[in-house]
Design a protein around this nucleic acid. Sequence first.
DNA 1: CGGTATGTTGAGTACGCTCAACACGAGTGG
DNA 2: CCACTCGTGTTGAGCGTACTCAACATACCG
Lengths: 271, 271
Amino acid sequence: MSGHVLYLGFSVRRDQRRTAIVRSAAIFSLTCWRWGRRKMHHVSPFMRRVAQLLPSSGRSSPILDSVGFRSTCLEKGSEILGAGTSVRHVLTIGHGLAMRYRLLPDGSRQVIMFLTAGDICNPHIYPTVIDHGIAAVTPVRIDRFDCESLIGLSNSVVGLNQALWTLAEEQNAIMRNHITSLGRGDARARVIMLLKELSLRLSAAAGQVGPVFIPVTQSLLADAIGVTHIHFNRIIGDMGRRGVIATSRGGILVNSISMLEKLGEDLIVAA
Amino acid sequence: MSGHVLYLGFSVRRDQRRTAIVRSAAIFSLTCWRWGRRKMHHVSPFMRRVAQLLPSSGRSSPILDSVGFRSTCLEKGSEILGAGTSVRHVLTIGHGLAMRYRLLPDGSRQVIMFLTAGDICNPHIYPTVIDHGIAAVTPVRIDRFDCESLIGLSNSVVGLNQALWTLAEEQNAIMRNHITSLGRGDARARVIMLLKELSLRLSAAAGQVGPVFIPVTQSLLADAIGVTHIHFNRIIGDMGRRGVIATSRGGILVNSISMLEKLGEDLIVAA
DNA sequence: CGGTATGTTGAGTACGCTCAACACGAGTGG
DNA sequence: CCACTCGTGTTGAGCGTACTCAACATACCG
């Protein structure tokens, strides 16, 4: 499965051995990994979310569904968009979990935000260069649209442009939350906020209730909130003992979001 | 000047006395503070920046300049947009310095980002509600446009929509830098990054070279990078002794941006 | 001239980092 | 099949940065 693999970055763990975290993936040449039983032309989660924001709310717009896109499946760890890459396509998450991140000169990594199904990878639908990388956290399906098609559509379909702005604003809100979490709040508060945000987004995407599994390694989560994976582990170890979450290899299971929220409120009261 | 003043928030200083930081301002009723010698209908910095991003680059577009807007001047500390406010106008910074911020339940404050002349306060040109406050850091002139006018214009003027997206992406890039700065890097690195970013933006706006004065109190700057104003003071005290900056009441003078950058690089090497 | 907003300095404390090891599962190749 | 490696999770001990509390100094404003 992994023939010629390019090592682009290294994780923060200085366990004397450095570990590759991002593999370059020939995104345009990979054949599509099996995807359920659906053939082609399933509806992209991105378009579904856009349609919900249109004035003719609720019902899916046949015009939007007719827009062509190509799905590509990537294994965990592959690079979706590299920093400095100029893009001529609009990449959206079809399935799975990805992240925006930056690699620093000292070798450490900052996860800027996580992207779930329906999120757009580009900053907008126009061709640009981005200043950060995007990589697959889990196996990911990318739904790739054509810039020109979307631009044309945004000029003709009423409300589409506004819908796109609203979607972008959702990501901005997440970033603002992230800044607030990093700036104020100690490590425990950051962990709680991150887990809460992720579990809410994941459960909303899946349309489920009850326990949510977050398929992200502790190292990655720690890199998002700016603590060491060691300290992160200690914190969630404590939370696990209280039954709020359960740890397992490769992810964290959030038993109850409401308990998580209660824990966060208790933190504020204690302070 | 301050008759009935509404206290909306408190600074972080727990000097036993809490200090009001944000005063509500009747933005729509204030008469315009004197603004140089220009009468009315100067060109808004916002429109100037938009025009530079248009395909017909360089020259100012007469169509854009003809768009009507109203300027309002606010004193330092006044609230420009409150959290949860629904906006029917597009507010842009005409002159001065503002900030996006959040107040937390424990009374502390996180400055999300600073806004300089030409920056847009709204997330986009469509009516929305915002999840954070915007307040004037220095005396500020607000150039207020009509949502409808801009929306109409973005449909007719080619490239305008893309220009707006590009502008928004600039702010996003700043936020990503902020996240990276907060997540990685110790207090000193954060101070250097913040000062560098602000001085670069301010000097670019003024079109000057040489020393840049950042008219922001240490408490505010500290609230931006998530350190106490005490620790912030110690750090810039050290930097002042090295001649990189000079402190004065109500602001910081950055003597040389290149020295600042050098200091930042030395930090990385040392680590 | 007080009152308020800022800036500055000192001392003690604690949270989170560093270094160091070990445990364990999954994948790989002999 | 087992040995081996790599990624990941987990735990312990010591240390340093940044916080807290407390004071004082200075500038601005009515």
